[in-house]
Nucleic acid binder design. Structure first.
Lengths: 108, 108
DNA sequence: TGACCAACCTCAGTTAACGAGGCATATTGA
DNA sequence: TCAATATGCCTCGTTAACTGAGGTTGGTCA
């Protein structure tokens, strides 16, 4: 998968995933990897900064949770403003796809 | 339109356009602007470097043409290797869209 | 004990697009 | 007439996201 195409789609992906419920970083990476059959491996260096940025803008919030074995996970959950932002992002995404499709031609 | 989403789609767009026939830079910008009703304005700072890069890799070639009024235009046309590259890019594009769609959910 | 997995993170380097600028000539309208 | 706009090419410093590689802590298992 072309790295350049991916740019900009990360927030959309993250917010969409978090709509299904709170998740922690490692879990997000594994989920994406599994659901795409390994085609797309979200890198840690892309994920964590993206999550922190989404949290800084209060589209998502985080809380630490200690597992039974004593280890900690940081869960992220989507906020109301994040839902609104996601809605706008989705619209933008669809416009973008339609635009490119118009030039490239429809999927065969 | 989010600038970040656009990243990586420029070569795909350019090669697709040049499939219709040779075009010059200014014409490409105007064509994109008109066909998208102004939604997407391809910037010169993005276009020319992209064209030059595609030419450096010999996916496209260029020639100068003098108009009747004496002014010059630089036309770009797609090369056989560019067609092959476009084909691969298209496939990649479709995979990318399907992938994101799988997370975001189908268009409503 | 040592290897590996889980889980968090940072940071230097790369790359594409943006914005603003420059250069030159033709056309148009006040 | 002459200034503004349009045509047409280009470069370059800055911005922002991603990569790849690094680091840390702690659990699990042979």
């Amino acid at each position: 998968m072309d790295r350049e195409l991916l740019k900009g789609s990360t927030p959309l992906l993250l917010l969409s995933l978090l709509c299904e419920g709170p998740m922690y970083g490692y879990q997000i990476i594994e989920t994406v990897r599994q659901r795409t059959d390994g085609t797309y491996t979200l890198k840690e260096g892309a994920l964590y900064p993206a999550l922190h940025k989404l949290e800084a803008t209060e589209f998502i919030s985080s809380y630490w949770e200690t597992q039974e074995n004593g280890r900690e996970r940081r869960y992220y959950s989507i906020q109301p403003s994040g839902l609104a932002f996601l809605k706008a992002k989705k619209k933008e995404w669809n416009q973008f796809v339609d635009m490119v499709q118009a030039f490239v031609g429809p999927k065969v």
